[in-house]
Structure formats: structure tokens, C-alpha cells
């Protein structure tokens, strides 16, 4: 018999020895325990078959897998970026929609301003806001956000306005219980900076937890009907037949980013619509541009 490798004569036993050996080795490998098989596989993988493995890119390192991983990685990165942009746009959209909604409810002129600084020191909550139409604004003008009344302008320096918030103990405002129409004087609380307090409430008055508190319109600072907050607690004064009502403010100075300075409308302030966000909004067609100071909104003109 001819030797298959060298072409020389070979005995039948020798000619079958190689193939039978391969067969026996295969069967032996198949019968070995898993732990031994793993060891042998690792040794072969990183020694004899290393060039093959490297060239072929076996398994996860294969060309197809690499291309797939690269494609998926790119897809994931793109999707992540898209998601981040979507979240940002969505948040901006939500905020602007609320602002637009507030604008449509107002009959007065709203001057937009951006919060550039917040102070919460011993003097109380003060915001520094910036606007392009500062020349039209006078000291004492109310400042509002979509949630409700935020405070009032106390000073002006160029395009920057200093806004004293309702939570500032120096701020006072005449308010009403929207349900009972009971009046009171509201101010920032000294001991609880996140709440407002109405002092010297007569015991005959009916202030209850959950009542909405709005501005009464008395005085020259705040127009009637601006939402201030909701009654959170009513307690009896230590001395005398009086009570005090604690109010949770609707607008938070720490969350305000864009605010509006409220100016009286050109047509007067006699017949204003309600200010509350829950009220139905006028049609979008009632939007009117004013002379550049901002956007004026009102009821649709009658034909």
C-alpha cells in the first residue's frame, strides 16, 4: 500500500493508523469532562488555532459580528442623542406652551423676562430678571408665572429688574378667599420661608384648608384675581380671638425661569378675563402683536 503523505509503500496497518487515531482522538475528546474540554479548547484557541481564529474572527469577533456590533453601536448612539434632544425639545415645548397659554388668558400686556439670578439670603427671596423692554416697566409692577403671582418689581437697573417675591417677609398683599370672599393681608412668613401667612384673621371668617387665595385688587400693586396659592393650615392665635391662615404659594421662586411683568392694557383694565390657568382659553386667533413691547392678548374682536 502507498503511504498517502509520502507516496512510498506502506503496510495496511500503518495506512489506517492515522485515520483511526483521528477517530479515537475525536471520541476521546467527546468523552472528556467539560472542565477538561474547556481547558483544551482554550489552549488550542490561543496556540495552534490562533492564526485561524484571528483571521476568521471566530464567534463574536467575526467580521459579521463586528459589523453588526458597529452598526448597533452607531444606532444606539444616534438613538441616545435623539432621545436627549427630544427630551430637551419636549421640555422646552411644554414650558413654552404653558407660557403661551398664560399669555392667551391675559388681557393686559405681558413683558417677558428671564431670571438671571436668585437670592435667598437674610433679606428674603429676591429674583434678578432681565428684559429688553425695561423702559416700559415701573416699580411696583406685578410679576407672574404660569402658576400664579410671583412677586413685584422693587427696583430697576438698566435692563435688569429686581423682583421681590411673595415669600419675602417684606412683601404684603391684599388677598381674598376665592370661595368665601373673606379678605386678609398676606405676607411672607418669617419662620417658614416656603409658606405665606395671613395674620389677624377674625374667627368669624371662613378660611378652610384647600381654599384658593387670590389677590383682592385693593391697593395699586396687584390687580384683582391673580392666584396666590392655597390654604394649607388654619390655626388659632395664642392670644385674642384671631386666627392665622398658612398658604402654600402657587408660584415657586426657586423654579421660575421665565417670568412676565404685568402692565395695564392699553384698553384699560375694566373688563379683564379670569387669570386662573384652569379657566377655558380664548381661541388662538385672538393673538395680536403689539408695538414690539411684547404680545397683547384679549378676546376675539367682534365682527
Amino acid at each position: 500500500m502507498i503511504n498517502p503523505w509520502r507516496g512510498k509503500q506502506s503496510t495496511p496497518v500503518r495506512s489506517w493508523a492515522g485515520p483511526v487515531a483521528a477517530l479515537l482522538v475525536s471520541i476521546t475528546l467527546l468523552a472528556l469532562p467539560d472542565r477538561v474540554c474547556h481547558t483544551i479548547g482554550s489552549v488550542l484557541e490561543y496556540s495552534v488555532f490562533a492564526p485561524y481564529r484571528y483571521a476568521v474572527g471566530w464567534g463574536q469577533g467575526s467580521l459579521a459580528a463586528r459589523l453588526e456590533v458597529r452598526r448597533l453601536s452607531k444606532l444606539e448612539t444616534t438613538a441616545g442623542l435623539d432621545q436627549m434632544q427630544m427630551q430637551e425639545v419636549s421640555e422646552e415645548n411644554r414650558r413654552l406652551r404653558r407660557l403661551l397659554g398664560l399669555r392667551r388668558r391675559a388681557a393686559d400686556i405681558l413683558i417677558p423676562a428671564t431670571v438671571v439670578s436668585r437670592e435667598r439670603g437674610r433679606g428674603g427671596d429676591v429674583l434678578l430678571v432681565e428684559t429688553d423692554a425695561a423702559e416700559t416697566i415701573r416699580t411696583g409692577s406685578p410679576v407672574i408665572v404660569p402658576e400664579g403671582l410671583l412677586g413685584s418689581v422693587v427696583s430697576q437697573d438698566g435692563t435688569r429688574l429686581r423682583v421681590r417675591c411673595l415669600t419675602n417677609p417684606q412683601t404684603t398683599a391684599s388677598v381674598l378667599d376665592q370661595r368665601t370672599r373673606d379678605e386678609g393681608i398676606l405676607r411672607g412668613a418669617l419662620r417658614d420661608r416656603d409658606r405665606l401667612v395671613i395674620l389677624d384673621v377674625p374667627v368669624q371668617a371662613d378660611w378652610q384648608v384647600g381654599d384658593r387665595v387670590i389677590t383682592s385688587g385693593l391697593g395699586d400693586v396687584f390687580p384683582r384675581g391673580l392666584l396666590v396659592g392655597t390654604v394649607e393650615q388654619v390655626e388659632r392665635e395664642a392670644t385674642g380671638p384671631l386666627e392665622r391662615a398658612w398658604v402654600r404659594p402657587a408660584a415657586s421662586p426657586s423654579r421660575a425661569e421665565e417670568v412676565f411683568v404685568l402692565l395695564p392694557g392699553a384698553a384699560g383694565t375694566g373688563d379683564r378675563p379670569d387669570w386662573f390657568p384652569s379657566d377655558p382659553e380664548p381661541a388662538l386667533s385672538t393673538l395680536q402683536l403689539d408695538d414690539g413691547r411684547g404680545l397683547t392678548f384679549g378676546l376675539a374682536p367682534s365682527p
Binding site: D34, F49, R53
Partner: peptide
């Protein structure tokens, strides 16, 4: 060739070798 295939799944080491040898 069988061993090359088998090292991908070491717990079946020898299976493809045996199949191809047979």
C-alpha cells in the same frame, strides 16, 4: 476543521471532529 468549529463550544469538543472524520 471539526476542532476549529468545536473550540467555539468547548463543552462539545470532539463532536464536529468525530462527525467530519466519520
Amino acid at each position: 476543521i471539526g476542532l476549529l468549529v468545536d473550540i467555539e463550544q468547548p463543552e462539545r469538543l470532539g463532536l464536529h471532529s468525530l462527525a467530519y472524520v466519520l
